[in-house]
């Protein structure tokens, strides 16, 4: 089977980010998506701590410890960008002003429930950050994740077994094997990578998939 590597997965997500979109990229792999958005598109990135029009990493020696992104990495501001406080930043999220959010996930359910903030291990201290606000607020929520976990267990399930971040919030899932939409009829496969077959992908999925049209 063809399994995309994380860079290829980011590149695939980037294709679905339209020109003119306001986008929030979650920490970790989703942040890589910006590297692959074609230069002929203008995309404005939002950072939860209070930035619109986040620019690339600064040159060495130009870092400002105040100017960081949600992943606590140094960033810059593009011309036309601005700063605002955290309450306004989350009003932008919850108020439905962002076109797309891209998040990583532990699990996604057949009806678009998202689990990405905690496992069932109570000894490990939990952290939620802005994930729940993004999940309910962004107009479109893209999830980018491997199709199966480290043990080879499916991450797309009828019901999530980890604590939920939000219910019925995911629109599109980009895995290393396929692109799958969450629809009222169920999980619709919209793209199979390389020569991956529907049956192969279904066998690694814990919920029933609908074959591509």
């Amino acid at each position: 089977m063809l399994r995309l590597n994380p860079e290829q997965m980011a590149e695939r997500v980037a294709k679905d980010i339209p020109d003119g979109a306001y986008v929030n990229l979650g920490i970790g792999m989703p942040t890589k998506v910006a590297n692959y958005v074609s230069g002929d598109k203008l995309v404005i990135y939002h950072s939860e701590n209070g930035i619109l029009a986040v620019g690339p990493a600064p040159a060495p020696g130009e870092e400002n410890p105040n100017l960081i992104n949600a992943g606590k990495q140094y960033v810059t501001l593009l011309p036309g960008g601005c700063y605002f406080d955290n309450a306004e930043s989350f009003a932008i999220m919850r108020g439905g002003h962002l076109d797309i959010a891209v998040l990583g996930a532990f699990q996604v359910s057949a009806r678009g429930d998202l689990a990405n903030w905690a496992t069932n291990n109570d000894k490990y201290p939990p952290a939620v950050g802005g994930a729940m606000d993004l999940a309910v607020g962004a107009r479109k929520l893209f999830v980018v994740m491997k199709h199966t976990d480290r043990e080879g267990e499916p991450k797309i399930l009828e019901q999530c077994t980890y604590p939920l971040t939000g219910t019925g919030v995911v629109q599109r899932i980009f895995t290393d094997l396929a692109v799958i939409d969450v629809t009222p009829d169920g999980l619709q496969v919209v793209e199979l990578f390389g020569s991956n077959t529907f049956d192969e992908v279904q066998a690694l999925t814990g919920a029933r998939l609908l074959p591509p049209a």
Binding site: A127, D133, G137
Partner: peptide, 24 residues
């Protein structure tokens, strides 16, 4: 934080970030 949490000497109230800023 991790050490104090594991030994149980610090109580944690976990609040989603936008809820934290709005409650404030």
């Amino acid at each position: 934080f991790e050490k104090r949490f594991e030994e149980g000497s610090v109580e944690l109230e976990l609040v989603p970030q936008g809820t934290l800023s709005e409650r404030i």
